[in-house]
Write a protein that binds this DNA or RNA. Structure first.
Lengths: 192, 192
DNA sequence: TGTACATCAGTGAACGCGCGTTCACTGATGTAC
DNA sequence: TGTACATCAGTGAACGCGCGTTCACTGATGTAC
């Protein structure tokens, strides 16, 4: 009995984060509250205080979990098409886009103005892991300054994904991934 | 006396929008409330109800005002460098970036998950005017499908601006506009 | 094996706060006559 | 020019709500002996 249900609930902390992710998914970032999350996890509204000193801490943990899933989404898509550096870069972008579309509320918390504890070790670590994926797939195309290439690819997919989930500019696109493939062509990667 | 102070306050509606823009600028989109905006405009908290039936209406008016300033920012930057189609496109992007950096809260409301009355005629009109600027500067580079080119430029500058104001990826950049100039190079515009 | 105890996760009541909205009102404005 | 009146913007009190947080508590767990 070294693990699993060590006390009453059995890892309430993880259950709260999970409930928070679900709540943000359903009702958006602004709907997140300690009381709703506690209710969704089936505990009293005072219970979360034992795991998160404040709402800010809970939000931070949820955003960190977002980065974990974000990284996983990119890695999965990269693994599906690993043939060439270009395929890998495109794969990462498609993983990026899929995560944003499937988790728009979380995506908005991660990259919007929602404030978190930016010093939080877990948040730093999970966010850095996501950035590392982008740096890795950009490396083969690096010019004089690798950051330029990273930012070019990152800006393009981030902008596309953001616009897609906010409903701007692509109202009638039948297939967003197909559309992005064409947009991606406009990036002159090999020349750098 | 056909205009100016027609009744008590003298265009309280505009004053509330202005106060709302200032509040969002100082404290972010989540800080926006009818009561704070009324206080900032120097009226009682019940006064706004005569001009905005609900908070959603006020928010919508603020976002519409955001699009007005956004369009103006792009037009100003385009007018400063009108020599070539490429200069115009780059100018629009710099106007885009400057607006985002100077009005990050408003920018977030315009393109984030903040909900508005999307049917509102004023919002539709002001948002369409912004999109029209992007379509105009993209037109000279259009390939088979003009939307592809618009979206490529738009995704790139939108992503860059979003990442810049959220503090991701460009922590140590001394000059963001200079950095964007280099990123913009990666867009293969003439070839399309 | 049994007992006393420290630990700690979760409870439920209570707090004060800011919020959107409602409502009867006041008083200034502009107009009809 | 003066008077009665309709209009309407703004007031201040009141409402009910959901919120984060605090606090004394309960009761289960795990451990020392």
């Amino acid at each position: 009995m070294a693990e699993g249900k060590p006390h009453h609930h059995g890892n309430l902390r993880a259950a709260l984060v999970e409930a928070g992710v679900a709540l943000v998914h359903r009702d958006g970032p602004d709907a997140l509250s300690i009381r709703k999350v506690a209710a969704a996890a089936g505990v009293s509204h005072a219970a979360p205080a034992h795991h998160f000193p404040s709402l800010l801490h809970l939000r931070t943990a949820i955003v960190a979990e977002g980065y974990r899933r974000f990284t996983a989404s990119m890695e999965t898509a990269i693994a599906e098409a690993p043939n060439t550096p270009r395929d890998a870069a495109l794969g990462a972008c498609l993983g990026y886009l899929r995560f944003a579309r499937a988790n728009s509320g979380l995506f908005d918390m991660m990259f919007g103005t929602t404030d978190c504890i930016h010093d939080d070790p877990d948040l730093r670590e999970t966010a850095d892991a996501s950035y590392a994926v982008l740096a890795r797939i950009s490396a083969p195309f690096a010019g004089a300054d690798p950051v330029d290439t990273e930012l070019a690819i990152w800006s393009m997919i981030h902008g596309f994904a953001s616009l897609a989930i906010s409903g701007n500019g692509m109202h009638d696109a039948p297939d967003l991934e197909e559309l992005f493939l064409r947009i991606f062509e406009a990036l002159d990667l090999s020349a750098r």
